[in-house]
Design a protein around this nucleic acid. Structure first.
Lengths: 333, 333
DNA sequence: GAAAACATTGCACACGCTTGCAATGGCGTG
DNA sequence: CACGCCATTGCAAGCGTGTGCAATGTTTTC
């Protein structure tokens, strides 16, 4: 398309009066170059504005330095902070994040993965959706790393990072119990992601084990507006809940706002709420939401450090726990 | 590092019984291939899991398809939604976003731009900070496109997308005036980004032109916590403001929460608030924030479509206006 | 002082792709 | 049948690197 004219190693070599190899070696850590040549090369490079062509280098080294981040709804607070954490970690190890937007369809995840292959990405990190087995197998077979975050379903050779969702959900129940809540509810989206379902099941089963019923409602996406609808449904039930565990914080915000402004309930007096993710808004004084913190930095660290390690025989599974952040949305913290 | 073994065009060619060129042409739109060969090539490619190597293609075509997004604090709602909009638009034209995190330092922006050059990115889009002139000149001279969003300072050959900040600020003043507010204030961060300063100056000068003084306070970043501090400072002044225009929505959220919960003020009765950006939280019922909407989709469209156009002689300047979204935080909408 | 070890350097090939060029063969026209 | 046109195809050069190998010059060792 538009002519690009970048300066190449040859030009630098000519100007510095050395061979092209010398230039290449100057920019290759650990290669053998005399102090004198290096100086002259650097000088010429500086003057000409030379930068090693990472495309060509990637071609030779068979290592592009690119890592593909596959994610939907990336403007959501939790996703955004995870993306940030990961891309930072990647930069620390001199890799760089390629961002691919998907919609919820698994087809679009497949396409994203194909793109990752085309760019010979060193790895792909999947935050949303689930690729077809055939295509993810191709990735692994080709030597591309695969990381699945909160994706539960298994993929051979991939690193799976998950949280102890059920365990957290059980603790949510305990929190409600200590607060003296008796009419429990769970607010979920209806997208049915494994981790969301695990939270639901964990909560319900913990409650049932203690002899409590749970009013479960599922609707829409995991965004604020769905929380509004969920609150309307739950709070107009014959037995009005006095405790709602929300599948994530955005839902919780919608639930809290609706409970307060539409149903005139006081939190935590009339209603206790617990969320999941610990997005920034959870700490805002309008919410003071008690919630489980996703260890985003830890997740990012775990993912990126695995990329540097030599590949073990098979895929790894990494289970992290979510810490409960006590705030004002539950009585008696 | 780890051996990657991707299948190459040669292997596909061998299997299909054609030349390497035929394979290449099959995957090059508009190239001359017979229906029969194309079929055979596609069949072989499918069977082997072949994907064109974009690194090599980029090397030949001198067009990588990569576009570098340079941004700090990308977990912030406005930034996140802008990144999403841009990366989507890019995908529409078969380009792909590389994400680079910077801190506030201009040095880190320089490094990011160097990286963009190394990867022979087709373009760089800068959302935060400002690169050194020498390095941005190198980009332009090398034929790499440069887009500056809300960056005011000029760079030759770059596309600059800005909002009519002063104009918007003037309208904020008018809104307050119509609401009968008399003690005006402006809450700003102290990072001093041109667009933020333009909002401040526009507001102050519009007010002064009508005979009003404005209490200006600057502190910290553009995040919620700074809004908290700003509210504390402004609302403890001898003349307590009855209207605060905030440089962005996050500040506004902090201001509103603090006004309500710490100072027991009612919004909009005791205090009117206007923000900027129209992040999702602005529409949440805890805030109902009247705010200027950044036309993120429009910005993304403008930026990406410019990348497709042939390069005109010089840099372009694109000024968009921010629409005022009336909600409940100002009396008498 | 001779031999051996070592550091440095250039050559040339490889990486996987695109594309200009020429060769091939099929086809319609006169 | 001769001719020219056209679609298709393969050859080979080139994109900007990294790196093994051999050659060169320098230092160390005995």
């Amino acid at each position: 398309m538009n002519q690009k004219i970048f300066v190449s190693a040859k030009e630098v070599a000519d100007r510095a009066g050395v061979s092209r190899s010398a230039v290449s070696r100057t920019f290759t850590p650990g290669a053998s170059v005399s102090e004198e040549t290096r100086r002259r090369v650097m000088e010429a490079a500086e003057a000409l504005g030379y930068h090693v062509n990472h495309l060509a280098r990637g071609l030779m080294r068979n290592e592009s330095g690119l890592v593909c981040l596959i994610v939907s709804e990336m403007d959501t607070p939790y996703r955004a902070s995870l993306i940030r954490a990961i891309s930072r970690q990647l930069q620390n190890v001199s890799k760089i994040a390629m961002l691919i937007n998907t919609d919820r369809s698994d087809k679009s995840v497949d396409d994203a993965l194909r793109l990752a292959i085309s760019y010979r990405a060193d790895a792909s990190i999947i935050l949303s959706g689930m690729p077809d087995k055939s295509i993810s197998d191709l990735c692994v077979k080709s030597g591309q790393r695969l990381v699945l975050i909160n994706r539960d379903e298994e993929r051979e050779g991939a690193l799976m990072i998950n949280l102890h969702d059920r365990e957290a959900a059980r603790r949510a129940f305990i929190a409600f119990q200590r607060a003296g809540c008796r009419r429990l509810a769970f607010a979920n989206s209806d997208v049915g992601t494994p981790s969301l379902m695990a939270r639901e099941e964990g909560f319900v089963s913990a409650a049932q084990a203690a002899g409590f019923e749970v009013a479960v409602e599922r609707f829409g996406s995991t965004r604020y507006q769905s929380g509004v609808v969920l609150a309307q449904r739950l709070l107009t039930r014959e037995v009005r809940p006095d405790a709602i565990f929300c599948a994530n914080d955005l839902l919780a915000c919608g639930v809290m706002d609706t409970a307060r402004h539409q149903f005139r309930l006081e939190i935590p007096n009339d209603l206790c709420v617990v969320g999941f993710d610990d997005i920034e808004q959870a700490s805002w004084s309008s919410y003071e939401l008690t919630t489980f913190a996703q260890p985003v930095d830890r997740i990012a660290e775990e993912a990126v450090s695995w990329l540097a390690k030599p590949l073990y025989d098979a895929g790894l599974s990494c289970k992290l726990s979510a810490e409960l952040n006590w705030r004002g949305s539950v009585r008696g913290g």
